[in-house]
Every structure is written in structure tokens, then in C-alpha cells.
């Protein structure tokens, strides 16, 4: 069985990204970048399935500029067998990404396709579901546990107010919740080894996909700030303020 894992390069989660002063885009120059945390869970799960003997090959794919080689190498260092970079300098919408990955799926023919459930930058959480739609195959989103038995995949999903268990057929697109697993730390020697591995590069333009978007970002700005609050000295004062100023009767 073969797995394809999609890997996105995003800003470090601790960083508070700011808009550029002209509002044209966000300012990510010099910001620390890495593998999207949810994608790390996806990679980890692929590796665990391989360690269990259920999976024989893990292919990692990333879409973006040549800078994305670093996240692919991170994946290789964790245990991904083969890395593919779909190279483009365009900023693409989830639908275009899903269409490009569909081309890779047609070539690689994986049984299982793993995504993170959302990306820390765009926060859309659409690409996995879109790909499943384009492939007309099953989907298991926000997965916190995955088990493969024969041709069926048993998935626990995080839903509003609880969890849900579903069983899907292969091929399936899964999206990983942070609770799916604890991603392993990459050891330096593994990273050094990964540097030497080759990365297959495909030009996005050669895949024959219309990636133009009908969504246009007009501007980006800082969200309105909450008005500055005050400090209270004790609970009594707090309750009094809530009552007198906010009209909250407790």
C-alpha cells in the first residue's frame, strides 16, 4: 500500500504575522518557516502505518517555490521515502492545490492520501475535502485515530461536541487532527541524510491545470483591537464592575 502526504510550508506557530504597511499582503520576510503542524501529524501517521507493515511506500508532495525543498527534506528526515515538489511561484487557492495534487495522485496512484486538517497561514481547511471531491473518493476529516483493516479504514473524527467513528473504503483522503499522534523529533543525522536525497521537481505549469483564481485579495489589515481593559484589585471589585458597567447580574 502506498501513501501520499501533502506538506505545506508555513510560518512558525509562535509568530504573530503582521500585514505589510500598504495592506497588499502579509509581511513574512525573515519569518521562521517550517512544516505546517497538522501536516507533521499526517507525516507521522504515514510513518507509523509503514512501521506497522501496512504501508510500503510514503511519497511526500509540496506545492510552492524552491524554498519548499526544506519542508520536503524535513519529511524525508522523518521517514518519507520519496519527495515531489510541484514548483510554482504563484500563491494558489485550495481548489488549485487540490487540482494539482490530483495530477500527482493520478501519476503515483496512492491508496491513502494524508493532509493536515488546516494550515496555520490561510486557516481554510479545505484542500483535503476538495481533493476527495475531485477524486470522487471517500474522505475522513479531522482524524484523531486511523486503523487500516484489509480494504477498510476505521477512523475516529473530532466533531462538534465529541467524536464520531466512521469506516471508509480505499482509496481515501484523510485530514489529520493534532491529536492523531505526537510527531517525532527529527535527529540531526537524519536531516543530514535527507539533504543528500533527491527531490523530484515538476513544474506546476506542465501539469495542464487551470490554477487561475476567481478570488482576489483586495487588502489585508490588522484586526480591530479590543478596547483596553482595566485591572481590578479583587473579586469584589470585579463583580461590582461587571454589574455596574456591563450590566451582568451575577
Amino acid at each position: 500500500m502506498k501513501i501520499l502526504v501533502a506538506i505545506k510550508r508555513v510560518q512558525d506557530y509562535n509568530i504573530k504575522v503582521q500585514p505589510k504597511s500598504d495592506g497588499s499582503d502579509v509581511d513574512i520576510e525573515g519569518v521562521k518557516m517550517g512544516v505546517n503542524p497538522f501536516d507533521e501529524n499526517a507525516i507521522e501517521e504515514a510513518i507509523r502505518l509503514k512501521e506497522k507493515g501496512v504501508v510500503s511506500e510514503i511519497v511526500g508532495v509540496s506545492i510552492g517555490s524552491s524554498l519548499n525543498q526544506d519542508v520536503l527534506r524535513q519529511g524525508l528526515a522523518m521517514g518519507v521515502d520519496k519527495a515531489i515538489l510541484v514548483e510554482t511561484d504563484k500563491v494558489l487557492q485550495p481548489l488549485a492545490i487540490a487540482k494539482l495534487i490530483k495530477k500527482v495522485v493520478e501519476k503515483e496512484k496512492p491508496d491513502l492520501i494524508l493532509f493536515g486538517k488546516l494550515a496555520l497561514d490561510s486557516d481554510a481547511g479545505q484542500t483535503g475535502q476538495m481533493l476527495a471531491g475531485l477524486l470522487n473518493c471517500s474522505q475522513g476529516t479531522f482524524a484523531s485515530s486511523v486503523e487500516i483493516k484489509g480494504t477498510e479504514v476505521f477512523i475516529t473524527r473530532e466533531i462538534d461536541g465529541g467524536t464520531e467513528s466512521i469506516v471508509t473504503k480505499l482509496p481515501v483522503v484523510l485530514t489529520a487532527d493534532l491529536r492523531l499522534n505526537e510527531p517525532r523529533f527529527v535527529k540531526l543525522p537524519d536531516l543530514m541524510m535527507a539533504r543528500k536525497k533527491s527531490i523530484e521537481t515538476i513544474k506546476a505549469d506542465d501539469l495542464g491545470v487551470d490554477v487561475s483564481s476567481k478570488l482576489k485579495t483586495i487588502n489585508v489589515s490588522e484586526p480591530p483591537q479590543r478596547k483596553e481593559g482595566i485591572k481590578v484589585k479583587d473579586i469584589k471589585e470585579l463583580l461590582q464592575k461587571l454589574n455596574d458597567i456591563e450590566g451582568i447580574k451575577i
Partner: peptide
Amino acid sequence: RSTYAGNVHATIKSDE
């Protein structure tokens, strides 16, 4: 809509 964990607001026009 909000992006970057709520740190940025983006104004988007859709021609879909």
C-alpha cells in the same frame, strides 16, 4: 475573513 490564527484580516472579492 481572518487568517494567521486571527492576527490578520483579509478582504476578498469573489467572482465565482
